[in-house]
Amino acid sequence: MSERQRSIEIPDHEMREFISELSMIESEKQYLLPSFHVAQEIFGWVPPAAVEKIADFLRVPLSEVYATLTAYSELRITSDEKGYWFICTGVACEMKGAQNIVQELADADEFKVKDIDCQFLCSLAPVCVDDSGGLHGRVEVSEVISRIRESQTGGE
């Protein structure tokens, strides 16, 4: 865990909400993954302060908590991906031009866009994931751009 991630301030109300939610979970090791989900749901990632609270609450060594946390690809241990949009590059999406969409958006140098592994919506390829995790099917570059702009301006 980098010093930079440690130094990110967690809003008090989010931490209070997290502690309150965590206290509703049974204090057993088996609830490690559910606890991570609670943290990610509230903070958008699993910050070091939350990891320490989880380790204390479930009485699991901090090293073991991190070993488990970092093994799950969908759990975020940095806040770096906040605000990003993703274009699915699974086989079906690739066939429908996903890579071109990623490239065009990257070339525009204006949007926070990355590629991502299969999002399991292959029947509606190509697929885009918005910054809140929402899925959009059969997308085109222009549509993704207008959606991103719409979200940046706070909607309609």
């Binding site: 993954l33 559910p34 989900h37 093994a71 759990l75």
Partner: peptide, 10 residues
């Protein structure tokens, strides 16, 4: 119910 968190191996 348990919710996974990614990983093909899961």
């Amino acid at each position: 119910l348990r919710q996974g968190a990614g990983g093909y191996v899961c």
